[in-house]
Design a protein around this nucleic acid. Structure first.
Lengths: 222, 222, 222, 222
DNA sequence: TATGAATGAGGCTTCATTCAT
DNA sequence: AATGAATGAAGCCTCATTCAT
């Protein structure tokens, strides 16, 4: 931001920067191969050869960039959690007057998000491998669920402060909302059970869920 | 030919029954080894040698009783789903006059159930391997979650019919109740995240959850 | 032949003879299973379990009747060489006046004999396993090829003595005749090469072969 | 970029060619181990460990060079059929005036050829495994017997055209000659039967065989 | 730094054989 | 004598990793 336009003039970009670029590129290339294979086969089921083939590099290169299979797996998982996990970010847009319809939009977004294939796959991976890679779940939570919960919690607090909702513990309320969104579809999908996930079904579920949430935290009619 | 009509009426003490007994015993022995190893290492991570060692039988014996690794895994998973998955069964005991306190007991039971180590481990396994063993998730659901949902749904319908609750879709309500129970503790535990699962924390969560459910489906104050 | 009808009256046929019969029957049953499997898969390729299954007996029974796999294989091979290997036996029928047409019948018989599936399979087995079971080839020769050669040699000697053929070494001549019969069809079939083995092709080959033999050993036209 | 137009004109001494050389060497090394073991034990009897040990490489290396046991076996067999199977090639040297003595030389060469240990071993292998590897017999025929037959057939046709022999079907005559050479010694040796294969015995047999052939196809004394 | 051949441990499975019933 | 469960050695193959080029 505050850097002058002539940052790093013409002195050293010859090799160092070029090779750095290439390194980064190769690394990303490898991570893409790793993503494909790990998501498809899990940690134990994946093989370094397969990853190398998928990434279009040699097996040796894998070991030039990462310490080994476990290391590559961790890198892949954290990297992808960071970049590919969706979170409800644009929540401030929902600061309009109608809480109820905002909630309906939010629940629908949340359900779709959790059904998204990458989220699903990462969830399955992390639940399956959490025993072997306990630290990864943290990244998964931080970049995925946790981020959404924070945003949601802030929003709920604001609306509660505004009197539109009656929430004592916004953190917990956010978590309740998110978990309610998992009923019926998301929960079953994680087990690969057959389920109707048509847009209509999702929309219907989102509405009921928002309604339920309003019943819990909506302003009491008295 | 000359046997009386009451030939061995209640049993068959021959060798057949003895050897059958032994077979069953060995099978169970193997399943116990399999359980230990599969729960600890997952499907791919487990090795037949390890299982044989843990079960105290030779590697060959594994193949006398099961067709192979996948078959043993399926048998272990279905068997354990059937026998070890808890479900809320004794729900009719809760047919007392006070719905709210019944619900509190139910939520607490449900949370404890889902936190139980076997349920947890089976959940982690099945989520991780559902892609490779799609039929197993079905067993997991049928013997675990599904059974509880059915029982709960019946109970809710009865109380709704009795006017103590106002529920249109008891199946869905049951699912909402169960999923609400997973907020905060169960959900985090599945990812091996640190969480306060002390009895007090559980009790508190159970109460809040029951309260929330009552807000959704309780009789409207008029 | 000279036995009275009351041979072995009623004294001992109870168990001993009955059990002896059963033993023989089981043995034969096993040998049939062994034949099927060994012919299909060779010695190393066959498994005792497979043989037991095919024979309809338990694996243990195999070891009650034979010392082990090698022993069973030897027994099967010798037994089948003895009973199933065809040899040109009814050669004296060919003592009619016309040597040439007798020869044509003989060559056709010989070719068909060597093409017969059991002969073929036994030949393939013994050539493949001769290194491991050197003694078996002897049985194969004695009951198969050798027997035919002897018969043929005798016949040739007789016709030579009768002046119809001019043969100095009937043993060798017999061998030449038999080996000439293997040209074109038999030889190729042993290698599983595609070949026309229709009755017409066989008949044609038999004729040419007989003609060739007559050219070698027929009475010189003077 | 700055390379002269005569950049590496006749070879490519880079790493590529060096590593290619090494690959070929290792491959040959493996094939030698395979040859030793397969010839001694047959396909099923051979073990990959044994081959690796005999070849002086690790078991894994076998699989870097060949797809598996069957693949290695095929490669070994075709390779050895191509390079080690003898065929009567220098047959045109026999275009001298004396057909009979040429034939005697040919028969002796043929008998020795077929008795040669590699031919024998390959024959035994292919007859034993032709059921499992049908395509290999083809290679065996093409590089061994078939090649000789072709050469011989051409030669016979020439001598027949020259009026020295009277042959209508040179292909078949060639096959008869070759098969006649297998009487007595070759045929028995394939079954590992004891046989006198001294040079004198071979020479005697060769002469008789040539004589017999001349009786069939020699110019008719009129 | 990129390559990919080499390694050898270890995985799943089959097999001949034994032995208690 | 018949059974078939148990055994453990051995078979084929794959894998993560190393290292010379």
């Amino acid at each position: 931001m505050t850097s002058t336009p002539t940052d790093r003039p013409e002195s050293m970009p010859d090799e160092a920067s070029a090779s750095l670029c290439q390194m980064r590129a190769k690394r990303e290339q490898i991570l893409q191969g790793a993503e494909k294979v790990f998501l498809a086969s899990g940690y134990e089921g994946a093989s370094m050869s397969q990853i190398a083939r998928e990434a279009g590099v040699s097996k040796g290169t894998l070991y030039n960039h990462f310490d080994g299979k476990a290391s590559l797996f961790s890198a892949f998982f954290e990297e992808r959690s960071k970049t590919k996990l969706a979170a409800i970010e644009a929540i401030s847009r929902e600061d309009g007057p109608d809480v109820h319809s905002s909630l309906r939009r939010l629940t629908e977004t949340a359900i779709k998000m959790m059904l998204h294939s990458t989220s699903m796959d990462l969830y399955r991976i992390i639940v399956g491998e959490a025993g072997k890679f306990p630290n990864l779940a943290d990244a998964f939570w931080r970049y995925g669920f946790g981020r959404t919960l924070n945003n949601l919690s802030d929003w709920l607090r604001r609306r509660s402060d505004a009197g539109e909702l009656q929430i004592e513990d916004p953190d917990f309320a956010a978590e309740q909302l998110m978990i309610l969104c998992q009923a019926r579809i998301v929960h079953r999908r994680r087990l690969m059970l057959p389920v109707d996930d048509s847009p209509e079904a999702i929309s219907r579920l989102a509405n009921i869920t928002a309604d339920s949430f309003m019943k819990i935290y909506g302003p009491h009619h008295q």
